[in-house]
Amino acid sequence: MSQLALELINLKKSYGTLEAVKGVTLSIKPGEIFGLLGPNGAGKTSIISIITTLEKPTSGQVKIFGYDVEKDPMETKRRIGVVGQEVVNSGYFDVFEILEFMSGYYGILKNKERIDYIMHKLGLYEHRQKKVKQLSGGMKRRLMVAKALVHKPTLLLLDEPTAGVDITLREDLWAYVRELQQEGMSILLTTHYLMEAQELCRQVGIIDRGQLKFVGPTSQIIEQFSAKKIMIKLRKDRESMAHKTFLKKKDGFFEFQIPSQESMGNLFRDLSLTLEDVEDIKTEQGSLEEAFKQIVSK
């Protein structure tokens, strides 16, 4: 069996003449959180729909722990949990019943212990007898996550799970996602909150108009595609400092922006500065958001 949790091999999907996914190849190792990032309409949801068998690929292959989603859909479905973008309103049933039915669909008849554990973890236990329409927006999102976890999946697909939810819930959810990862779960995450993706994901893929523009470690993309800011305060203040990377002077600090991979020493040398000249230095690392903008605007 393959060691990879998820493999996309030259995956293509077209809707008529529109090519939504153009030959995407990437993989996720077991126990890894992978961020699939891209603007709206980039093809992220199409990829997730193919992984979950809701859509058929035009060509290419998707494997989950070595099982092909088209040849062994039952095997792959047992291994994945899906949190979709839309909140599902199962109008007739309460939270516990919904989770009990979900367990049953995965072949688990008596799952009360696991359901209670997840409800406690996600703060749903007090709301277990409420119907979906009686839950707040945040609680509905938590229910979506709980539904995806009742059968202990080994690969969790989170398709913009925090779209439109408040900061507290987002933080709670990400903390739980980290916990799941520590337990060994592999996670594919799509989100528009790039700061959060930067903190959570060690690997990211950036997709734009169906094409995978970058795939690799988050630190590498930041280094490669973003700039860092260096703010220097001199003991003997000057009016200005002539350098191609100079941005502005603010509160006595001279701000420079240099590529992330470039060292501060080079800047000091160019400016003919020594440590004795400097009263204070602040640095601001580049972000995934900057790198993302760089890649997507290309």
Binding site: L54, M74, N89
Partner: peptide, 18 residues
């Protein structure tokens, strides 16, 4: 019809129910 319009049907389709 209700499952289709509420999104419940997709929930069922991603499970191992044939």
């Amino acid at each position: 019809a209700v499952m289709k319009f509420s999104g419940d049907l997709e929930d069922i389709r991603v499970t191992p129910l044939s």
